[in-house]
Design a protein around this nucleic acid. Structure first.
Lengths: 197, 197
DNA sequence: ATTATCTATAGATCTATAGATAATGC
DNA sequence: ATTATCTATAGATCTATAGATAATGC
């Protein structure tokens, strides 16, 4: 064999399906049969690609998911105009192009179900991937005098929570699309609700 | 029997345990055995209080949970000073005194597991209980000239998402407590990140 | 030859039901 | 007498393993 690990196309299909399902519904709500059905195979075949079973599958795709977010957020921000507003909008657009992360569910429901060491590592990765890039935007904007706040980490977290909350608004209420709503929320945060002047 | 329905103290204990567990971990992550263990009885005994089983239990306590939030939010807001900032802080304090609602998890994971009619009703109740009271604060503040925004419903949703995102911050990062962080987020939203003057 | 999938099955756990027993309220 | 709990068990579903079969890559 070429690799010790199995990196075939078939494996990718399995991981992609697992990633989407776990992201959407969380660890406990997804069964191995759900994943297998999404791929179009029998659930026993999943063990060929992930001998560690459900937990290995979850830990691996959660890591992938975070890595993808880090790259996607980084690229979105790097590709945007260099002002905070444009960068935050680009970050929000990217977040809304992916299934919701739901960090609260991860902390309260998913993490307690898996090995604590894996959970601890994923928590760090979550911060590095999701919050750090946005925090960096805020820090740079503060240095450039665009914004003025002493706790960019807190704001970054709040911002992500605000954006992701849009996934909870019922489809029939989403008139102009989630992106437009996200931009409006970002404007509100940057400019403030209190009237200027 | 006095009532057709069972409203005893024992039943309250069962519902309280179910409410806390379902709120924390979601429908699929909680088993009837978990609930029974929390109460200190055998799982079969739960059927005496909720003949409809797990789903009946969930639908009932989810409704209770929302009702409690509506009352709690209403009381917190009514008891606060009449300015937006004080009212929003009071609302945030109350939200943080309860387990997280995680509306995203409800929409993506819990609702698809239950009867659609129940899900639809709960979605309406969620809006009335959680968002409407905060939206009302914003509308009144706008009428009083305190704030200026054309979409109070959107802001209310974003605000709740922002506050609840604090449940995802690891305990060792919570230095001054979640309430202080929530107040800081509310200040940021009211005043804006961009420097005034 | 290696990789991917399948069938079959074990064993654990979950929801749910039936009927017996204990606790409580007149 | 009524209410609350228990034991025992059925039946479904879930994770996981073993070993056979099919597909693919030199």
């Amino acid at each position: 064999m070429r690799n010790r690990v199995d990196n075939s196309e078939a494996r990718e299909r399995v991981l992609d399906a697992a990633e989407r399902l776990f992201a959407e519904k969380g660890y406990a709500s997804v069964t191995l049969r759900d994943i297998a059905a999404a791929v179009g195979i029998r659930h026993a075949s999943l063990y060929h690609h992930a001998p560690g079973g459900k937990e290995e599958l979850f830990v691996e795709v959660a890591g992938r998911n975070f890595a993808r977010h880090r790259e996607g957020l980084g690229a979105a921000i790097a590709g945007a105009a260099p002002d905070v507003r444009a960068r935050l909008r680009a970050a929000a657009d990217w977040l809304l192009s992916q299934p919701p992360m739901d960090l609260v569910r991860m902390v309260y429901s998913d993490m307690p179900s898996i090995d604590p060491a894996h959970a601890a590592r994923l928590s760090r990765v979550a911060y590095d991937s999701l919050l750090a890039p946005i925090e960096a935007v805020l820090i740079e904007a503060r240095e450039g005098g665009e914004i003025d706040h002493r706790n960019p980490g807190l704001i970054a977290g709040g911002l992500v929570g605000m954006i992701e909350s849009l996934y909870a608004v019922p489809q029939h209420v989403v008139t102009r699309g989630r992106q437009a709503m996200a931009h409006e929320l970002i404007d509100a945060l940057l400019d403030g609700l209190r009237p200027r002047k």
